[in-house]
Design a binder for these strands. Structure first.
Length: 198
DNA sequence: AGACTGATTGGCT
DNA sequence: GCCAATCAGTCTT
């Protein structure tokens, strides 16, 4: 999948990592490890991030912050490294990580992961989802996200965080495309702010 | 208060 | 390809 990077595997991604611009952070998150301890299970879910999208500021017609500060978007105005989860279609919890400086509403949407390990999930679920979890709704379901994750700080949280993976995905293996499902956003829908591995 | 929409998915025709 | 599920957020009356 990529070349080996010595000595960094398992290191938690820091505040500094997330405080940069979303267009820098989003592609760098591809290949990183996501770890989540859900409310309902004892095990830790681990996945390698395979697909992300960037949402960038009030001017971005596809970003939830286009309506300004609301109860839902408030966390996007917070520090880089905070978790922004929201419910879509009354069914799926979407996982985002806030990036950029304070009061700069940006976030990375996690749209796909490759599962490394998942110890205590029910057997039928594990079989039905296999090792790839593609699509943001499926990611949220696999990780058993809910509103309690809203505002969690991935630089210090004991139940959700990111780590260096120990290898680096070659730039040539990362595909850049337009974002999915944001046609309503006009010109902003044409920005190539989606990145996926292979 | 009511209508409409959505950073989606899965099932059925 | 079409559409229901299901509810928070936003817009209209």
């Amino acid at each position: 999948m990529g070349s080996i990077v010595e000595g960094m595997m398992g290191t938690r991604l820091s505040r500094e990592f997330f405080e940069r611009d979303v267009l820098t952070v989003a592609p760098e998150l591809v290949g990183k490890v996501l770890r989540v301890k859900s409310n309902k299970e004892d095990g830790t879910s681990r996945g390698i991030i395979t697909e992300v999208e960037a949402y960038r500021g009030e001017e971005d017609g596809a970003c939830h912050a286009r309506f300004g500060r609301t109860r839902r978007t408030e966390v996007m105005y917070g520090k880089g490294g905070l978790v922004y989860v929201y419910l879509i279609y009354g069914m799926y919890w979407m996982l985002n990580i806030v990036t950029g400086e304070l009061n700069q509403p940006q976030a990375v949407l996690i749209r796909g992961i490759r599962i490394i390990q998942n110890l205590k999930i029910k057997k039928e679920k594990r079989l039905s989802l296999k090792e790839r979890v593609g699509g943001p709704g499926r990611v949220g379901r696999w990780l058993q996200l809910d509103d309690s994750f809203y505002g969690e700080d991935v630089t210090s949280s004991q139940r959700i965080w990111f780590e260096e993976s120990g290898f680096k995905i070659q730039e040539s293996r990362i595909i850049q495309t337009e974002r999915i499902g944001v046609e309503y956003a006009g010109e902003w829908a044409r920005k190539k702010w989606r990145w996926l591995a292979e």
